[in-house]
Structures are given as structure tokens and as C-alpha cells.
């Protein structure tokens, strides 16, 4: 009888230790995942704003993240074109991945509630049900008038 009880007790102790170990590992995995996602978001922002197809003139990039509005409109037009769009998505997939990228800029001359204008630059999400959204603020440069507008970049990534 006693050996059986000892075995049972040992099994309970080992079970509790294993449970503890699994929980600790799960917590570390969650933390690592959250950190990795945060780094990926920053890396994506860096890639976007240094793409020559979107980047501002060098003089405008010294102080802040910056995207050229005219280039962004041309880029979005190319992505949406029936002939060039699919091939362009294949070309940019290694850089931009499975994401939707939306540019929203604000014209201070317009009244509140009507300031925002929006443009989807890139749309390559495969599954719209599991999406993680990141927003970052930066400068939208309008090259014709050389004006800088407050803007927001909304990146939806597959999670």
C-alpha cells in the first residue's frame, strides 16, 4: 500500500512541476511573439518610407518618416491596374508581404470632419479574418506646392 501511495504522490509532484514548466514556456512564447510583431511593424515602416517609389526627396527625409503624395498616387494606380497590378504584387510581395497599406493625410485648410483624405496604396491581404492593424504618424509631402501635411499610415498585416 505504501509504495503505491508514494508513487501516486511522486506522480502528482512531477505533474505539478510539468504544468509549471509549460505555463512558463507559454508565457515566454507570448512575450517573444509580441516583441517580434512590434519589431516587424517598425521594419515595415522603414521599408515603406525608403522605397524609392514612395520616398520623399532627400531634403524632406532628414527629420521624419515621409511619403511623397504624388508617388503614392502613382503607386496605388499601378497596383490597381488590371494589367500591371498582379505582376506588381508578385514583385513587391517580398518587401511588403501580405498586407493592406492605407495612406490617410489631413488638409488643415478644410474644416474639422472633412480634413482627411485616404488612399489604399497596396492591397495584398489573403485572409481578412485574422488581421493585425498598426498605425503610425508621419509626413505626407506634396511636391507641387512643396507642402508637408500630417498623415497616418495604416498597415493591416496577416496575424
Amino acid at each position: 500500500m505504501e509504495p503505491i501511495i508514494i508513487v501516486i504522490v511522486l506522480a502528482i509532484i512531477i505533474g505539478l512541476v510539468l504544468l509549471y514548466y509549460v505555463r512558463i514556456n507559454a508565457h515566454e512564447v507570448k512575450t517573444d511573439t509580441a516583441n517580434y510583431q512590434a519589431k516587424e511593424d517598425l521594419a515595415m515602416l522603414g521599408r515603406l518610407t525608403t522605397l524609392p517609389e514612395l520616398a520623399c526627396p532627400r531634403s524632406e527625409t532628414v527629420k521624419t518618416y515621409c511619403i511623397d503624395l504624388l508617388k503614392a498616387q502613382a503607386f496605388a494606380s499601378m497596383m490597381g491596374d488590371a494589367r500591371s497590378g498582379p505582376a506588381s504584387k508578385v514583385y513587391y510581395n517580398p518587401v511588403l508581404g501580405a498586407t493592406n497599406i492605407t495612406l490617410r493625410w489631413y488638409d488643415l485648410a478644410k474644416p474639422p470632419g472633412q480634413m482627411a483624405q485616404q488612399l489604399t496604396i497596396y492591397s495584398n491581404l489573403r485572409d481578412s479574418t485574422r488581421v493585425r492593424t498598426t498605425t503610425t504618424y508621419f509626413t505626407a509631402f506634396e511636391p507641387v506646392n512643396s507642402t508637408r501635411q500630417f498623415a497616418m499610415l495604416i498597415v493591416e498585416r496577416q496575424s
Binding site: K30, T31, A34, Q37, K63, T64, Y65
Partner: peptide, 28 residues
């Protein structure tokens, strides 16, 4: 479990910093 909360705080701090940098460079 605060692993997500810590990542959120860092993301919010980065967002706030980018907001300030962008607003300072916005033309009036």
C-alpha cells in the same frame, strides 16, 4: 500575464513619438 501589455506600451510610446515628430513638421 502582462506580455501583451508591455508590447502595447512600447507600441503606444512609438506612436506618440511619431505623432510628435510628424506634427512638428506639418505646415501651418
Amino acid at each position: 500575464d502582462d506580455s501583451g501589455a508591455r508590447a502595447n506600451r512600447a507600441a503606444n510610446a512609438q506612436k506618440s513619438s511619431s505623432f510628435l515628430t510628424a506634427i512638428a513638421e506639418t505646415d501651418i
